[in-house]
């Protein structure tokens, strides 16, 4: 465990909490992609299946439970809460799950470190996390005017990924024999998806303007 990894995990948690608090406080989920949230829930469940038999540390176990719990709450709010579900922008959140899930499933069967069910599900979760933000980015693009909290949510998520890259660089430099190609390449692709958004986010922040994405 190093400071970069810790910062990454905290930023990840913070991003989820920002979203959850926004939904809870405003009783609105306008601008939030349910597809992305459900994909993240699938990512967490397939990756953290080992929660019950692979104990690594209390830190990891607590984070796993909290990530699954908080993301479930977001999905519950968007699908079931009587007021919140009415604000869901389903007409614009039209990204097809299959376009992301199917290639990730095939890829995880073809490229994995070990051919067994849990390793393949773990690999699937790594691939799926890399692209799970896409429905959210498409929704932001479509609705143009991005409210502050949604913008902050995506920004914090991107920052979390950036810190994970620093964590890998640090581990590679300090831990003999450490390598994780599959995770590195997926992570680089994932972080790459945020670059465009980051550019506009920083521009808006510099000019202290409302974040607006170009068409």
């Amino acid at each position: 465990m190093n400071l970069f990894r810790f910062a990454g995990d905290i930023l990840h948690l913070l991003s989820i909490l920002v979203l959850l608090l926004k939904i809870h406080a405003t009783k609105s989920c306008a601008g939030i992609s349910l597809k992305t949230q459900e994909l993240y829930l699938a990512v967490f469940i397939t990756r953290y299946l080992d929660l019950f038999w692979n104990f690594h540390s209390l830190y990891n176990s607590v984070f796993k439970v909290v990530y699954i719990g908080t993301t479930s709450m977001i999905v519950w709010y968007m699908r079931r809460h009587r007021n919140v579900k009415l604000t869901y922008d389903r007409d614009h959140d039209t990204f097809r799950y299959l376009f992301l899930v199917a290639p990730c499933a095939v890829l995880s069967l073809l490229i994995n470190a070990r051919y067994n069910l849990f390793e393949i599900l773990w690999t699937f979760s790594i691939y799926l996390e890399a692209v799970a933000i896409l429905p959210q980015l498409v929704l932001l693009q479509r609705t143009k005017n991005v409210d502050n909290l949604t913008g902050n949510y995506v920004f914090l998520l991107g920052l979390y990924r950036a810190f994970y890259i620093l964590n890998w660089v640090y581990r590679f430099a300090t831990e003999p024999g450490y390598s994780a190609w599959l995770v590195w390449i997926s992570g680089l692709i994932q972080t790459g998806l945020y670059l465009d958004f980051f550019y506009y986010y920083v521009q808006a922040w510099k000019q202290s303007k409302k974040l607006q994405l170009p068409s």
């Binding site: 990894r5 995990d9 990840h12 990756r47 080992d50 038999w53 692979n54 690594h56 990891n60 984070f63 796993k64 990530y67 470190a113 070990r114 067994n116 849990f118 390793e119 773990w122 994970y164 964590n167 995770v183």
Partner: peptide, 10 residues
Amino acid sequence: LTEGKFHDEL
């Protein structure tokens, strides 16, 4: 599953 590579990151 516990032998070999261990997934220690989240």
